[in-house]
Structure formats: structure tokens, C-alpha cells
Design a protein around this nucleic acid. Sequence first.
DNA 1: CTAGGGTTAG
Length: 393
Amino acid sequence: MALVIAQKSELCEIIFTKLSSFHLVPDSCTYSIMIRCHCEKNEVEEAKRVLFTVLENGFEPDSATITVLINSLCKRGKVKKAMEVFEFMERKGLKLVVQQHNCLLKGLSYVGKIEEALEMLMNMKKTNFGVDVYSYSIVMNGLCKVGRSDEAMDLFNEVVEIGLIPNVVTFNTLIQGYSIEGRPVEGVGVLKMMKKHECVPDYISYSTVLHGLLKWNEIVEAFGIYKEMVEIGFEVDFRMMRTLVRRLCKRSWNEKRLLEDAYEVFEKMKERGLVVDKRTVEVMVKACCRGEKFDEALVNLNDMVRWGYSLKAIAFEKVIEGLCRQGRVDEAVSTLFLLHANGRIGDRISYDVLVNELIAHGRVFCASFLFGFALKQGVALVPNKELQANNRS
DNA sequence: CTAGGGTTAG
């Protein structure tokens, strides 16, 4: 079994053929492992042959063995063959247990025969072997995958009605269904429902909800779920965090309060040492400028240059203009040099704004120096009156 | 103490 798990099926088979030289006789458990071994190698016919050998040797193959075989067939979409095994066992007078029925349910859903799966589920209810929560979860998943979450929800209600206990997988299936159907907020509703059913949402529950909300652009809801995840201690996938930051930034243009939320997620990414791509930084800096948060913008520009990222000049230019507007001219000049350290050249507007702001502070000498510096960089500025006067003197 | 089985995401 260890060899099968380690995917060393060849070795497993060699040992099996050498059993007799150790005077060992395989029993039903050995055969069951061999069936799985062949299934792993996609040798279904071989697996079936082993099953027949088991029967010929007078062993009663136990249900776990049959499950492995049926499951392996179903997983590969060979539902018809699985049915054959199924019927063969019934002719032998062996009744199939709920696990095997469940494999078939999954197989039927997998090949798109969801109606047949539903019919089978209804028949299972009538037998002594019955149905369990796996059966329902499987069919619900089949329905969800084809955009029939309402029917999946009907089945969920049936689960509760007949006294089965839905588990985290049952709920996660519903969440996924709503997500792909474009009803992500109902996924949030399922999360709340779980708490009522005393089922603890897991990482998959939250991630699926968050992914759905992001996919359908429910950004404010998404941030709420993100916060819950952080509070619980789940590490949110960095790609989702990146999307969240960008969308919150975009939204903060019209809804100022969202800037803070965006920054919170952004900071968490840096704190976790995640690679923040330059596009996200640019969007974040842009949003900071728009929200007049130049300290934050500047901190990030500094970080980016230090880490060797080459950002678009516009990110710096917006900060320069903003700082000048606030009269923080020294920091604005520093930002200009930061831009140069980043390997780019400021545009005409940045130099214009800086020169004018320096003059406004009465620092004409600095303004002249900067003016000359701009010319050297090939940025053509139109000198204003003060500068001309200064240069004449 | 005593092998092997079925459900959810990106």
C-alpha cells in the first residue's frame, strides 16, 4: 500500500508477483490493494481481472475493494463500465453500499448526466442502504456546476428535513454554486447559515466567498470578508489581496473612505513579505495622491526605489505636484531626485510646479539651479519674469 | 495493536 501511495506501482506489482517465492498467499486485502494499484496506473481492465481472480478463488470481495474499482472508473468518466461492475456484483448477490452509490452519483454528474444522478439519489432514499450527506453533497455539486444552485439549495433543505447533518463540504458546495452563477452575496448568506447550523466555515468557505465577490466586483463586501479572514487568522491568497487593493483604490476615487481599506490590505501584503507587483504599487500611490495622502505615497515610492522597482514617472510626478500644492517644497524636490534615482526624468509640469513653488517661497537661487538642471536633462521650460531678473543680476 | 473505500476552490 505504501508503494501505491508513493506512486511506485511497478515495484508494487513486482513484489506481488514474488509473493509465492516467500511462501505467501495473497488474501482479499492484498487483492484490494492490487486493484487500486492497477487503477492508479490507469489499467482498468487489469484491475477488473484481479477482481475476477478474487471471485474465482472463492473470496468474498469486500466492499472497500469494489469501491476503489468503481471510483476509479467513475473518476475517469467511464460510468458505463462502472455500471457494469455494479450490475455484475448485484448478479453475484452482493448488495452495494452507500459509498459505491456515491461514486456512481459523482460519475454521472461528471459526465453531465445530472438528471440520472438525481433519479438515482431519489431511489437511494427508498433503499435500506440509504443516502448520506456525501450523496447529497455530490449531487448538489453536480447541480451547482451547471448553474442550478436553486435546485442545490432545495436538496440542502431536504438534507436538513430528513435529519442528516450537513457538513462544511455541503455548505462550500453551495457557496461555489452561487459564486459561479454570479450571486456572490448569497455566498455570504451561506456563511451566516453555517454559523446557525453550528458548522465552522473553513479556509475553503472563506476563500470561495471572497473569490466570488471579487469576480463579480462586490468590493465592499469583499473587504468585509477579508477582514473576517484576517481576524480568524487565515492567510488570504496574495492574488486575491492584490485584486482587492487595486479595486478598492479604483473605487476610492469616488468613495474616499475606501482608501483607508485599500491601504490596510496593501500594508498587510508588505508585512507578510509578499511580492507586491509594481502595477499595484502604482495604483496605490495614485490613489494616495488622489486622497491627498502624500506621506503614504512617498513612503511607498521610497520603498519601491530601494527594492529596485522601476515605476512609471507619473507616480512620482503626482506626488511632486501634490506636495507643492501643500507647500511642502523640500519634500517635493527630494521626490524629484528620487525619480531620477529611479532612472527616469521628471516631466515639464513637475519642473514648472517646483520652480514656481520655490519662487513662491522666495528661494529664487534654488529655483534657478533647478531650472538649469531641467535644461541639462533636456526638459525645455519657459522662464518666468522672476527667473529672468535673477539671471540678469 | 491488526492493512484497503466515497464529498468542496483557485
